[in-house]
Amino acid sequence: MEEFSFANQLFQYLITGLTVGSVYAMVAIGFNIIYNVTEIINLAQGEFVMLGGLIMVFLHAVAGLPLILAFPITVILVTLVGMLLDRLAIRPIRQPSVLTLIIATIAASIIIKGTAMFIWGKDPFDLPAFSGRTPINFLGAVIQPQYFWVIGFLIVTVILLTLFFEKTIIGKAMSACADNPDAASLMGINVKWMILLSFSLSAAIGAVAGITVTPISLMEYDRGAMLAIKGFGAVVLGGLGSFPGAILGGLILGTIESFGAGLISSGYKDAFALIVLLAVLFFRPSGLLGSVEISKIKRF
């Protein structure tokens, strides 16, 4: 009996890990979309998730808008923040270098974080779960219905993005910018628009991640930085720029974190993802699915 419940516990950790990992995967996809078009690592990526959660709390739980309405409005508002980030912090930089771009996104992220503290204060906020909180018992593990929403939205996001990049002309134009911005520009693609679009898209995905995870883990103003660095961990683990890598990296990272917190030490919960990040950077910087050749031709 003892052994059986231990197995149940492991299964529980796995499910929790995959759910958290889905959030990291969405953050990682956001990183990759911007990176692929601009070669910028947007350290404000986590702030989109935080804003998604908190704006949703305001619209749904405070202002009383129905879920179906509050969800798209939140995504649109966060997307606007993403556009502002590009217009106000990235585009004005005249001599872009890794250093200035990293500093600019850090500056943007602390401005967003400070503004969120100004608006919402320091307390964490809860959001009603999309389909109640009656847990489902499955193979001895207790699963919140919201877990399925998080994983489900990751799947929906991936499908929509794949369709966007492979079937639509704008998506193809974005991929062209990722391959070679100069050539893309010669083909009549407006690279500036594509950069704006990449910031909008990844802000929107961040918002979705924030909205879906808030009913599970609550949300407060200072969650962004840690989400960003763990999302980056997922990016690096999977291979910078690779979408399948981002998903794989996110899920693995979430699972490692969940098992580490459960079996080794809950105090070091946040450290596990970072140790994985360092280990990958030190021993295999190209990640699981990344390519060394591609990383060599990148500007930064």
Binding site: I41, V98, I102, M226, I229, F232, G233, V236, S265, G267, Y268, D270, A271, L274, I275, L277, L278, L281, F282, F283, P285, F300
Partner: peptide, 28 residues
């Protein structure tokens, strides 16, 4: 030794992660 082999973003993120890990150790 391993970090400085990395360039650009990677180095920034490696030192960032290192800083947070040390901070967690101080707390734990």
């Amino acid at each position: 030794v391993p970090s400085l082999k990395l360039r650009g973003h990677y180095l920034a993120m490696a030192t960032l992660a290192f800083g947070i890990i040390v901070f967690i150790v101080f707390n734990e």
